[in-house]
Design a protein around this nucleic acid. Structure first.
Length: 254
DNA sequence: ATGGTCGATGGTCGA
C-alpha cells in the first residue's frame, strides 16, 4: 500500500497539480491538508473519476483536511474533541483496515500568541485520541502537516528559529509523546539524513537554496511501521507551475 | 531602490 500526505495550500488553486500528481504517482491513500474550501466545494466527483473515495472536513477560507482512498474508506469520522474540532484540522477513516487520520496541526504563529497555546492543547487532545486507538490494538496512521520540526536537523538553520514556533521543546515533546504511545516516524526510521525537507517558504528562493523544514510526516503504529519499505519526499511536486509550498511525503507498506 | 511569495479576499490576515 502506497500512502501519501500533502499540504496542498488551497485545493482550488492546486486542483490541476493534484489530479496530475494522483494520476502519475497513484497512491492508494492520500491525506490532504489546507484545502481551504467548504465541504460543498470539495471536488469529490473529480476524485471519484480518478478512482478515489474521499472524506473532507472544511470550513472555507482556511484549514480543511481530506482523505482519498482507492482501497476502501469506512467509518468516516468528522467530529472530534473540543480543541481538535475548533477548526477543520482533522478527519478520520478506516482505509484497508488501517485507522487513518489526516491532520493539520495549528501553526502557533508566535510563542506569545494564544495560537501557540492552542497548538499545544490541540496536540495534547490528539494524544488522548490516539492513545485510545492504540490501546484498542488498532493499526493507525496519522499523516499530515505537524508544524513541528522534530530535531534541529529538520530545519535548514535552527539559529534562524530562535524564539520561534516549530522547534521549541514543548512542541517537540508533544510529538515525542505521540511517538512514545507506540507510533513511528517512518521517514526517519528509514533515513538517517539531513537536509531532506517537506516544506519550503515561497519567499527568498528557499526551495532553490534547499532551505526548508521537515514538518510533514507520517506516524504509523509499530506493526505497520515494520512493513514500511520505502519513504520519500516528492521534490518534483514542489517544482514547476503553481506548486504548493509543501511537497508530498510518501511511504510504501509492503 | 524597493520589495521581496502565495492564497482567499475584496478589510488584510494567515502561513
Amino acid at each position: 500500500m502506497l500512502f501519501a500526505t500533502w499540504n496542498v495550500n488551497s485545493l482550488n488553486a492546486r486542483i490541476e497539480r493534484v489530479t496530475e500528481w494522483l494520476e502519475d504517482v497513484q497512491p492508494d491513500v492520500c491525506c490532504l491538508q489546507e484545502t481551504k474550501m467548504a465541504d460543498a466545494a470539495f471536488p469529490a466527483l473529480r476524485f471519484k473519476e480518478l478512482g478515489y473515495d474521499s472524506v473532507h472536513v472544511g470550513e472555507g477560507r482556511w484549514n480543511g483536511v481530506a482523505i482519498l482512498s482507492r482501497v476502501g474508506l469506512e467509518d468516516a469520522q468528522f467530529e472530534f474533541g473540543t480543541e481538535l474540532s475548533t477548526d477543520a484540522r482533522i478527519v478520520g477513516a478506516t482505509c484497508d483496515g488501517v485507522k487513518t487520520y489526516s491532520v493539520y496541526v495549528p501553526n502557533g504563529r508566535a510563542l506569545d500568541d494564544d495560537h501557540y497555546q492552542f497548538k499545544l492543547r490541540w496536540l495534547a487532545e490528539l494524544k488522548e485520541l490516539l492513545a485510545k486507538d492504540l490501546e484498542a490494538g488498532v493499526e493507525v496512521i496519522v499523516a499530515g502537516d505537524w508544524n513541528v520540526a522534530r530535531e534541529d536537523r529538520d530545519v535548514w538553520d535552527v539559529e534562524a528559529f530562535e524564539n520561534s514556533t516549530h522547534v521549541t521543546d514543548a512542541e517537540r515533546n508533544a510529538i515525542q509523546e505521540l511517538v512514545d504511545l507506540g507510533l513511528v516516524d517512518v521517514f526517519r526510521q528509514e533515513h538517517d539524513v539531513e537536509k531532506l525537507y517537506s516544506y519550503y517558504d515561497y519567499q527568498a528562493g528557499r526551495f532553490h537554496k534547499r532551505e526548508g523544514m521537515r514538518i510533514d510526516y507520517l506516524l504509523a503504529s509499530e506493526k505497520l511501521a515494520e512493513k514500511s519499505e520505502l519513504n520519500l519526499v516528492d521534490r518534483n511536486a514542489r517544482k514547476g507551475t503553481k506548486p504548493s509550498d509543501h511537497a508530498p511525503v510518501l511511504t510504501y507498506f509492503g
